[in-house]
Design a protein around this nucleic acid. Structure first.
Length: 107
DNA sequence: AAGGTGACTAACA
DNA sequence: ATGTTAGCCACCT
């Protein structure tokens, strides 16, 4: 089982209508410092494994997609489709929709 | 086959 | 408080 597969598994555990950060996914995948890899893995496998990459954003709740092939507006649309409010600047309120690996919200 | 880059985060000065 | 350095593993050239 590679880190990639673990990330994929974690990403698939993210409940709809919620978002999480690379750091959180990295931790859940067993790599506290592997936040970069999360982005990297998603970048190459998001479409291949049909992963909800839109639910993963950076620590500031902002969509970090630097890749033009992964349009932020698409992510915004997907999030809104799940009921997540996205700011016009593509910023999600992590205090509301932030997911920490549990179904419950932040304490 | 080896080296460099990458959707980031956290810690140190 | 902000700015810079270090770290992670997989994919691409």
């Amino acid at each position: 089982m590679n880190f990639k597969d673990r990330v994929i598994k974690v990403v698939r555990q993210i409940p709809p209508g919620r978002v999480t950060t690379y750091g959180t996914v990295a931790i859940l995948a067993g790599m506290p410092r592997g936040s970069r890899l999360v982005g990297g893995v998603l970048h190459f496998n998001s479409e291949k494994y049909n992963l909800p990459w839109q639910r993963i954003i950076n620590r500031h709740g902002f969509i970090s997609t630097t890749c033009l092939e992964h349009p932020k507006q698409a992510q915004k649309a997907l999030l809104e489709n799940e009921g997540v409010e996205v700011s016009e600047d593509f910023i999600v309120d992590l205090k509301k929709y932030g997911w920490r690996g549990r179904e419950n919200k932040l304490t």
